[in-house]
Design a protein around this nucleic acid. Sequence first.
DNA 1: AAAAAAGTTTAGACAAATCTAAAAATTTAT
DNA 2: ATAAATTTTTAGATTTGTCTAAACTTTTTT
Lengths: 219, 219
Amino acid sequence: MKLSPIEENYIKSIYYLQAKKGNVNTNSLAAHLETSAASVTDMMKKLKRKKLLEYKKYYGFRLNAAGNLYALEIIRRHRLWEFFLVSKLGMQWEKIHDIAEQLEHVSNDELIKKLDDFLGNPKTDPHGDPIPNEKGVMPVLRQIALKDLTIKKNAMVSSVSNQTPQMMEMLNHYKIKLGSHIKVTKQFVFDGSLQVKIDKQPECIISSMGAKNIFVYDN
Amino acid sequence: MKLSPIEENYIKSIYYLQAKKGNVNTNSLAAHLETSAASVTDMMKKLKRKKLLEYKKYYGFRLNAAGNLYALEIIRRHRLWEFFLVSKLGMQWEKIHDIAEQLEHVSNDELIKKLDDFLGNPKTDPHGDPIPNEKGVMPVLRQIALKDLTIKKNAMVSSVSNQTPQMMEMLNHYKIKLGSHIKVTKQFVFDGSLQVKIDKQPECIISSMGAKNIFVYDN
DNA sequence: AAAAAAGTTTAGACAAATCTAAAAATTTAT
DNA sequence: ATAAATTTTTAGATTTGTCTAAACTTTTTT
């Protein structure tokens, strides 16, 4: 089934609010989507007709299995595009969300599959949020700061917690990208700096400041 | 100004029909967009209000300078995405048009600028059609078959005239991509095969069959 | 130059998504 | 348990893009 971008936005918002608060009501969904409660009621009837959620007048609504799966598909597209915008086009975080909101509605299974492969099958978006797989399964990841990574354990760069020009300069210099393979080869107790191997590059040293702000998943 | 996807499709269709036939009338635009003549009339009034075309009842319509520029912007987005789908994701020609029709409506100037740079500022899409620049200027290109390329002249791969698995296999083997820099270093009169240099790779030999089907622009 | 044909526009209706204001149901407070 | 407050739904209007059928222009034919 293919929904309109508007319907997709409803599904996505319900999913988020449900994940955050357990249940969603008409008013909170209206607030989240910046629309009226009346519009929400109308749409709930429609999405019930389309069998994406349970809905009983005055008794709230809830995504069913199909609705959940659809939401995860949208989130998958959104997060893959966000990854693309940052890792391939080098866009800044603040700018990518709105663009990904547009791109997420482009629907073509082969496109998303190929995009995923092209990006190296990332497990999280640039903010560190997990990307559901094709079947709608969110990977369970342990994300830790690089400074806490067990020595000699392979890990992957998942996100970076600040995006100052100084930080970007450093990442750039070390050729650290989202998705980069990374391993700590030595720790210096003296100043907390680390010797690390990034992808296939020769080893280099990262300061404790840097190692605090770079996040990786090690599973 | 930001138009809806539907309005953009009207602008784009008018542009194409105008380029092909000089002038467009209500019925032919309706046919092209698979809609009714009445819908076209309604939309012409609207696009006139938005100052994108000249329109006089019963006397036809024509894009003005602003409308033309807008059309070229849409075409630019469409062709850049087509290039992306083929050169980065490795999709097949038959599949890319419909996807690009969706992607072309995603509007963000910085996105398109960065995408263009990421792709290496291609001058044509995978079909060999020129990509307008940011100012709406179509590059004037001389596209020729690789076999006709002057020896030792630098050129760029613009398109490939058939997409059989055999052809793809060869392109893959030689690492020839859209946008690849290419130069003929030697011609063998005997069988018409060519020695060529592709990007920074060592020289290789391409048969006359291959050289007939690979197109380049040499200016 | 009328009549016929072709092409275009208007009128009126419809579907999707929205809104406001009023009505109905539920929840909370007394 | 009734009243008050909150929340949700309905009713009816609006906007965008669409349609068919009828009316209107222009063009072509005779």
